[in-house]
């Protein structure tokens, strides 16, 4: 069917796809956490990532803070913003059985953030250019970009920390319990508002980390976030909703699919095929590609 290209090109493609896809993955991990406890698809996640990217850019050009170093600022700020965002915007709606109000708040927030960014920074494409932006490094015998590799490592570290938190800490276990069965968890003394706020705090902190990766890798504009949310949603579906490692893996898989489609078919098909895969997964394997089914009670 295809003329297979030489192995080194294939490797190059796969590497670039995986590195880029990890960014969808880290966005999806945030979506997964928030969906887990609150059953809300937080559509503003992409806008928060772009907001973080602008913030990173401002720190760099305004204060001369290295973008990767700014993780130390962006991540704690993200935790705080997420916590406040839950209590300020979602707390009341979360008490309702119906999630439509919460969803509309997320959509409203997305548009507000997009337009505020346009007012403050203009609608043009922006970017962060550092001394190492054009630097390449050798990885698995293939040349690739330094910033993309860093973005990948950030995604890996972010997901790893979230996993550790969920698996090893008692607060993390409470978040897992609430994600599985909020009513049962509530009757075990877990406050729904508490776990929702924790999910938001971590979700926005991850958006901050993803913002660093985006700012150093891609040019961006205030409206780029929505596509990011959609791609994260695809990654989430691929990985299995509510499965944190699956979300990262789903992002990487989506990156690979995009890279292959771009190379073997054409760039114009990338999004169409990504969303086609999204629908196909939801129809035929809604539990995600990586989840082992377990028997329900």
């Amino acid at each position: 069917m295809f003329n297979l290209p030489p192995p080194d090109i294939l490797l190059q493609l796969s590497l670039n796809g995986a590195l880029g896809g990890a960014m969808y993955g880290v966005a999806a991990v945030g979506l997964s956490l928030i969906f887990g406890t609150m059953r809300l698809i937080f559509l503003a996640q992409g806008a928060m990532i772009i907001l973080a990217a602008y913030f990173v850019r401002a720190l760099f050009y305004g204060l001369g803070i290295d973008p990767f170093l700014s993780l130390l600022i962006v991540v704690p700020v993200g935790l705080g913003v997420g916590w406040l965002m839950y209590h300020g915007l979602f707390r009341k709606a979360a008490a309702e059985e119906d999630r439509n109000v919460s969803l509309l708040i997320a959509v409203g927030l997305m548009f507000l953030v997009q337009n505020l960014m346009t007012v403050v920074w203009g609608g043009n494409t922006a970017g962060v250019v550092t001394s190492y932006t054009a630097t390449g490094i050798e990885l698995l015998g293939v040349r690739t970009s330094f910033t993309r590799t860093m973005g990948f490592l950030i995604a890996l570290a972010g997901t790893g920390l979230v996993m550790l938190f969920l698996r090893k800490t008692i607060v993390g276990k409470a978040v897992r319990a609430a994600s599985e069965d909020m009513d049962a968890a509530t009757l075990m003394g877990i406050s729904p508002h508490r776990v929702n706020a924790i999910a938001f705090a971590i979700g926005i902190a991850l958006a901050g980390a993803a913002g660093v990766a985006v700012a150093t890798t891609f040019p961006f504009n205030p409206f780029a976030g929505f596509i990011f949310s959609l791609k994260a949603l695809v990654a989430l579906a691929l990985g299995g909703i509510g499965n944190v490692t699956g979300a990262l893996a789903g992002g990487i898989l989506l990156g690979l699919i995009e890279a292959y489609v771009q190379f073997f078919i054409s760039g114009g098909w990338t999004n169409a095929i990504a969303y086609g895969v999204f629908l196909a997964v939801l129809m035929f394997k809604p539990e995600g590609l990586f989840s082992r089914p377990y028997k329900k009670a």
Partner: peptide
């Protein structure tokens, strides 16, 4: 209907 946390 039993509601133990199945992933734990």
């Amino acid at each position: 209907l039993v509601r133990t946390f199945l992933t734990m």
